[in-house]
Design a protein around this nucleic acid. Structure first.
Length: 635
RNA sequence: GCCGGUAUAACUCAGUUGGUAGAGUAGCUGAUUUGUAAUCAGCCUGUCGGCGGUUCGAGUCCGUCUACCGGCUCCA
């Protein structure tokens, strides 16, 4: 007999060799019907795999993320089996579960899969299946991808699965029976490099998702449609915030008047906070001499993947569109001798930069070739680094709070421990910089996960990652500790000992870029901006043309009170004006007719709500002022 | 850059097996003067993404380029 410990710490005895499924059955028939996989002593486990020793056990169903992962992983195998049956001679790479569904990377040889094939595969998948074992199979079959994976596994740890006629090398676990899978949707086809290496062969990746009930698939598809409605590219056009033009060039966003209004509000807000935090604003040119980037190391690292240098016609001098602001700011630091008493020097700029992003990477406002960073560089003494770092974290905290960004992930981006070639600077400096970030996070109590290989070439970063409407992760805010650029630019300050010392740089951008931030903000609020940011805060709706004069007086009064108001002057009925104003998501509607004009009042209607009643115009202006103040002070 | 897909009016989309393009919305004009989510009538709108080819004839078939969409790779 063995002792099985459950998550509630209760212990029960079972025969050695008992399976999780049998354990579930002893608890309840219903549970047994729904168990997909288990965790035994911390290891993922098949529901039908015997347990031979004392163990703690967790049982997973569709309601657990682990259960879903098992379900989808098995679905990937089911799909592979269907593909193998339909297309002879295809070879299989990997087929894992992902956040929403699964994929399988496949070498299809001479065959090109198209979307029509996906339907055929879906059908085939829902026919039959079972499970068993085998191994030399892959060599005999000549599947070099699986062979490579096998060769890296320790002997005795290899498990593999057979699914109908399809046999796979796999760590499992799998669901007890593929009849659990009742609904299949293969969602997309894509190329994917084998093992993520661009130099190796590109396989065909098939994405899909499955469910235990047809209804759940339908609900998922509806949810997807809803998410697409929040797409910032769609909302950006509908709300007239920004545009692109093939003639201007791809990846070069153009901010329309309403989008500019929104962006300026964000910039104003951050500028105010930065003043409180001792920043000084600067402005630098959009181009810089090539030598600047040779010195910084950027030319070495990105020169080939940048816009080509601009040259002067007579002298042939080379200038680069600036891809970042730090070298310019270093020159500002160098401009005059600095004393230890002057530090930290916090140099801020909304700096527009230009980067040659691969054409396939461009994506709405989130990945562009020209964007404006809410950039700043803090030049400080080594003993000030941690405090300065924490003060930047505070600024990011204030901003994320003001905008209700709750679901961000903090990521500590460190060097790739296996590839120091990619980075500049001494190990000693890197160690200091990486330690500073980790200490600051610990001190601030910020939960952050470490990601290796994600550092900038000159230093480690703390990145704030946020997901968009479709679950894609984007880096917004970033703070970077840099011991290297001060050395490369030979920056110095005079210390209390009257000797020269090397300052440390902190690069930071709370929004990241105005473009990406606005994109993610748009998707988060689905275009319903908080009042303080809305390009148009109030729309005045005259009941008929007779009240246009009153509406115009009201508008100029509101504008004097620093409230952004417009008038729907169309010759339409009030119901129509309200409907259109609702669809444009204006935060407030003011309905004015005979009664209001006579008494200098306004009837207030808030977006998404009903009639809020009538109030004097002064009272309304005060209400707006108060709400804006509250929204900006959620510290 | 790579793989797959898409491209028809300002927007959202129809357009059979090749026979020279249509709807709704928006816009414009007029009537109506409106009280909390669509008033009515009329009018206008296109190099069918560009270029080339097949054909008596191409929005439709083929090639190519461009842009966009979904991924991969990259992201100072």
């Amino acid at each position: 007999m063995i002792n099985i410990t459950f998550p509630d710490h209760s212990v029960r005895q079972f025969e050695s060799g008992v399976t999780p499924l049998e354990i579930a059955k002893s608890l309840s028939e219903g549970l047994a019907r729904n168990v997909l996989s288990a965790k035994v002593n911390g290891k993922m486990w098949d529901a039908m795999r015997p347990v031979n020793e004392d163990a703690t056990i967790q049982l997973f169903t569709w309601d657990d993320p682990e259960g879903k992962a098992t379900f989808w992983h098995s679905s990937a195998h089911l799909m592979a089996e269907a593909i193998e049956a339909l297309y002879k001679g295809v070879k299989f790479g990997i087929g894992p579960a992902v956040d929403a569904g699964f994929y399988y990377d496949i070498d299809t040889g001479d065959i090109t899969l198209t979307e029509a094939d996906l339907v055929a595969i879906e059908k085939k998948m829902l026919v039959d299946v079972s499970k068993a074992e085998a191994l030399k199979y892959f060599t005999e079959k000549g599947d070099e991808y699986k062979e490579e994976l096998i060769s890296e596994l320790e002997d005795g740890t290899i498990t593999y699965y057979k699914c109908g006629n399809f046999t796979d090398l796999c760590r499992g676990p799998h669901i007890p029976n593929t009849s659990f899978i009742k609904a299949v949707k293969l969602t997309s086809l894509a190329g994917a490099y084998w093992r993520g290496d661009e130099k190796r062969k590109q396989l065909t990746r098939v994405y899909g998702i499955t469910f235990p009930k047809q209804k759940e698939l339908e609900e998922y598809l509806v949810l997807l449609e809803e998410a697409k409605k929040r797409d910032h590219r769609k909302l950006g056009r509908e709300l007239e915030l920004f545009m692109f033009s093939d003639t201007v060039g791809k990846g070069l966003p153009i901010w329309l008047p309403k989008g500019t209004e929104l962006r300026l509000r964000l910039q104003e807000y951050l500028t105010k906070i930065q003043k409180e935090y001792g920043y000084e604003q600067v402005i630098t040119p959009h181009i810089g001499g090539k030598q600047l980037y040779v010195t910084s190391g950027h030319w070495d690292h990105y020169g080939e993947d940048s816009f080509r240098p601009i040259t002067t016609p007579e002298e042939g001098e080379e200038y680069l569109l600036k891809p970042m602001n730090c070298p310019h700011h270093c020159m500002i630091f160098k401009w005059k001798p600095r004393s230890y008493k002057d530090l930290p020097f916090r140099c801020a700029e909304f700096g527009t930069v230009y980067r040659y992003e691969q054409s396939g990477e461009l994506h709405g406002l989130t990945r562009v070739r020209s964007f404006t960073q809410d950039d700043a560089h803090i030049f400080c003494r080594p003993d000030q680094v941690k405090e300065e770092f924490i003060r930047v974290m505070e600024i990011i905290e204030i901003i994320f709070k003001a905008l209700d960004f709750k679901n961000f992930e903090a990521q500590i981006s460190l060097r790739d421990p296996n590839d120091h070639e990619k980075y500049v600077g001494s190990d000693e400096n890197w160690a200091k910089a990486e330690a500073a970030i980790q200490e600051a996070c610990a001190e601030k109590g910020l939960p952050a996960h470490v990601e290796y290989g994600e550092a900038a070439f000159y230093g480690p970063k703390l990145d704030f990652m946020v997901k968009d409407a479709l679950g894609r992760k984007w880096q917004l805010g970033t703070i970077q500790v840099d011991y290297n650029l001060p050395e490369r630019f030979d920056l110095t300050y005079i210390g209390a000992d009257n000797e020269k010392h090397r300052p440390v740089m902190v690069h930071r951008a709370p929004f990241g870029s105005m473009e990406r931030f606005v994109a993610v903000l748009l998707e988060h609020c689905a275009g319903e901006f908080p009042l303080w940011l809305a390009p148009d805060q109030v729309i005045i709706l005259p009941v008929s043309e007779k009240y246009l004069d009153f509406a115009k007086n009201l508008q100029s009064y509101l504008k004097k009170s620093d409230i952004r108001a417009l008038i729907d002057e169309r010759n339409e009925k009030i119901g129509r004006k309200i409907r259109d104003a609702e669809m444009k998501k204006y935060p407030y509607m003011l309905i004015v007719g005979e009664k209001e004009a006579a008494e200098n009042q306004v009837s207030v209607r808030k977006h998404g709500q009903v009639d809020l009643g009538t109030m004097p115009t002064e009272a309304f202006a005060e209400l707006i002022r108060k709400q804006v103040e509250e929204e900006q002070n959620k510290r």
